[in-house]
């Protein structure tokens, strides 16, 4: 029975990581830079969701408002700071700036919400376990799996079936070519950035009943998101999806068999994948 539970645990954890990694991957695909403030947006989503739940008493409202706040902050960050750093040869500048933003977010959230541990119970009707004979399993992880699959489906439709999606794909494939062909890369990047961080914030809200918010969580999540994105191959949504599941399952089965080395398992997986395929599972050569 432990093996069945571990399967669901791994899948639900993987879906959380996918929400986090999808945004990071999208932003890299279009902007060619790694947003190190991504974990910060994750916990901002969480804190907003927590406040919404406390003030308005509705968890699902938090799922709506959290990503909106995250997306708005993403737009603001792009307009105020990141916009000035677009373009080739400034990737490390972007990394440095987003790392600075990550530090600012860490202290700002601590100032705003304090250093206390914040956690919430699962919302009804998902607050009690499913029981089948001797086997019982909490319901909420299944909700996370559902949200993850839904987001994956919607993202796929957006990218494959809409004009905006085509522009994003064009900009991700070859920004210079896209520019030549008349795709407005700067607005596309801004939109992608807002979408990406909104997804991170969504992850933060959805994770709330499973994870506690406390100082330091942002950098933990950033690290995991980076692992997922790199294993999957940068800029590839499908890559992030499969990599997130792989990391989630490695984590849950690792905890079952080698609890002392759980953290090592994830980085061991990363090392193995990159040694085997230096550009990630679905990555293209010379990204």
């Amino acid at each position: 029975m432990q093996y069945v539970s571990a399967l669901f645990n791994g899948l639900s954890y993987g879906m959380l990581l996918f929400l986090l990694g999808a945004g990071l991957s999208l932003v890299f695909g279009v902007g060619r830079f790694i947003n190190l403030a991504h974990g910060g947006l994750f916990i901002i989503g969480g804190y907003v969701g927590f406040t919404v739940l406390n003030e308005l008493g509705n968890f699902w409202l938090g799922i709506l408002i959290g990503p909106m706040v995250g997306g708005a902050l993403g737009l603001a960050a792009d307009l105020l700071v990141l916009r000035r750093l677009h373009g080739h040869g400034r990737e490390l500048d972007q990394v440095l700036v987003t790392f600075g933003l990550a530090l600012i977010i860490a202290d700002a959230t601590r100032a705003g919400w304090g250093g206390d541990i914040r956690s919430v119970g699962a919302p009804a009707p998902f607050d009690r376990p499913i029981e089948i004979g001797d086997f019982s399993y909490p319901t909420y992880p299944l909700v996370i799996i559902g949200v993850g699959l839904l987001v994956f489906g919607l993202l796929w439709l957006l990218l494959q079936r809409t004009r905006v999606g085509a522009m994003i794909r064009a900009a991700a494939g070859d920004p210079q070519m896209a520019q030549v062909l008349g795709v407005p890369t700067a607005p596309v990047l801004r939109l992608t950035f807002a979408l990406g961080v909104a997804l991170a914030a969504l992850g933060g809200v959805v994770a709330l009943p499973r994870q506690a918010l406390a100082p330091g969580r942002d950098f933990e999540m950033l690290l995991l998101a980076l692992v997922v994105v790199v294993i999957g191959g940068l800029g590839r949504i499908e890559g992030a999806f499969w990599a997130a599941l792989l990391v989630g399952l490695t984590d849950s089965y690792g905890k079952l068999f080698f609890p002392e080395f759980t953290v090592a398992m994830i980085f061991g997986l990363l090392a193995l994948v990159l040694i085997w395929r230096p550009e990630g599972l679905l990555g293209r050569r010379a990204v």
Partner: peptide, 18 residues
């Protein structure tokens, strides 16, 4: 190369950390 090199060095360092 690039970000992959960065992440691979990170992975080995984290293994040493654990």
């Amino acid at each position: 190369h690039g970000i992959f090199f960065l992440m691979l060095t990170l992975a080995f360092a984290q293994l040493a950390y654990v």
